[in-house]
Each structure stands twice: as structure tokens, then as C-alpha cells.
Amino acid sequence: MSALLEVEGLNVHLPVDGSLRRVLHDVSFTLEAGKALGLVGESGSGKSMTVRTIARLLPQGAKVDGHIRFDGTDVFDLRSEALRRYRSGDVSMIFQDPRSHTNPVRRIGDFLTEAMRINGKVPAREASRRAIDLLAEVGIHDGERRMRQYPHELSGGLLQRVMIAASVAVRPRLILADEPTTALDVTTQAEVMGILGRLQREYGMAMLFITHDLELAAASCDETIVLYAGGIVERQQSKRLHDDPLHPYTAALVQARPDIDHTTGRLPAIPGNPTSAYEAPDGCAFAPRCRFAQDRCRQAFPPLLTIDGIGASRCLRTDELRGTLLAGATTEEVTQ
């Protein structure tokens, strides 16, 4: 079976103050129909840019090399009507802040039925019946009342459910979810993730899930990609990521995060600051902060090495370091 989404050798530069700055560096991955893939990284790592490039939402003047194929068609070849169909029917996006992506002076009902009425040419009455069903699907059972309300009358969690309902209304084949739960409380996050995961499986939609939270990605995606400075450093099955990371950066992230089950004397923090793609040095972007770095790491941009049956890692020392990345740096554990 061929993949639903294929991203190949994607390089993106954005114009900043008259010069082009690199934001994505050789990003390649595939996503099969019905699967959930996590994109994890710190700020400036290129997670949102990857998703925006896939949705063809880049600003004017952006320079893009590489290919993105959706169901075999190159997304960059799409023009006018075909691009519109791609954005309105094939992929849909869920954003971090539902409040800034809804029109404050339109009712929830207008927001939910707009796409159906315009793209699907569904009559108004039928559209609003479907919208109420959709709201029930996302756990909102007093849909009729909610349809007449305005966004400010709903809490963040409820409004994010409405966003999810709107984005699955057209039964897209791919959902691009950009930190959909970051602005929500933990209990609300759990509810929203439960709903999103269930709909994704029931409707057989593929999902690209962006988050800065490694544990959240691991808990809700089949596979996870870790990004650093605009490039992929690791791709692996989510459930293995935490216990057997392939790249030193992933291992460092896993260790730097405090654990809810015990206290560590000192957290093994990663020295320095995250870099963006255009500031990254030649060679491995993580090398300046990596405790395993050698001279050869600084010489050339390392290739993404595939490890059969496991995943991929952009580290020259992957083979020799595997299984040892989590050892050593952990300081003595102190039990309270």
C-alpha cells in the first residue's frame, strides 16, 4: 500500500529582512492512511512550519524545495480549484488556540455548517441537523443550544471540541493538529485527546499531531518524529521512544523532563539553548549541546540512518550508542 502523505527532501527558506532564512532542513517522512504520527520538538524546531507547508499555508516569498505528495499528487502542483478541494476536503487543521480561529461575531452553528453548505452544497436545515450530530460525537449533548451561542460563551475545552467537530465534518483523510491541547487544562486535555483519538480511528483518518510534549505524543500516536533545528533527528514507534531512544537529543529530552513518580536530585538538563535551523552550525545541529559529540559530528550534516524494523536516527554514532543513551547522565535518585 502506498502512503497517503509522502514528504520528501523538504527544504524551506523564509524571507526575513531581505534574506532567506532556513526553517526546514531535509525533512522526509511518510504517513499511511488511518495512522497517527506525532511531531515533537521544542520551540523553533520546525513542527508548525512542516504542517503549514503541507497545508500550503506558507507566506509569500517562501522558497520550497522537495516534494509533498498527497495520495500520489504533488501538493505544490495544485492550482486554484484543485488546491481549494485539497484544503477543504482532503486535509483539515486544528489549531492551538480555538478562540483566535473562530469568528467572535458568528454563532457556533454558522461556523459548523459553513463548510457543509458551501463545499457540500447541503441545504441549511440538513446541515444544522448534521452539525448537532457532530457535536454529540464530540461529547456535547445540548447541541441545539450550543449552535445558537457565540464563541465567547464557551470555555476553551468546549470550543476546542467544536473545532474538532468542524474539522471532521467534511470527513477529511488527513487531520493536521497543531498543539490542539496545549492551551487546555490536563483533565480537559485528556477528554479532548480521547475524543480526537476515537474519531480518528472510527473515521479512519490519518493524523499528524504536533506537540512539544513527548509523553503526550507517545501516548496518542503510533509513531513519533522528533525535530530539532528544522530537521528530523529521530523517527520511531511511540511506545519505544521513551525507553529506547535512538538519538542523543531524544534521550536528553526524556531525561530532562521531571518524573511524576519520583524526585531526582538534579535534573540532567541539556546545556545551552535550542537553536533554530538558520543558526544551526555545519554538521549535526545538536552537536554543541550533545555529550556524545565527536569531531566528525561537526563536519557534515549527518544523514538520516534507517534502522530496519525500528525507525531512523540522524546520528553518526547511532549503532555504537544504542541502548546506552539513557545510562550515565541520570544522577542518583532520591526517594522522598
Partner: peptide
């Protein structure tokens, strides 16, 4: 229970209606 972890079933403990 709402904290994401390996064998997480999100929303299982929460009421469906907020």
C-alpha cells in the same frame, strides 16, 4: 490519571459531558 503516559486511555475517567 489525566497525565499522558504509556498505557493511557485519555478521557476514560472523565465525564463525557463537561
Amino acid at each position: 490519571d489525566s497525565v499522558p503516559r504509556a498505557d493511557w486511555t485519555p478521557g476514560a475517567h472523565a465525564a463525557t459531558e463537561p
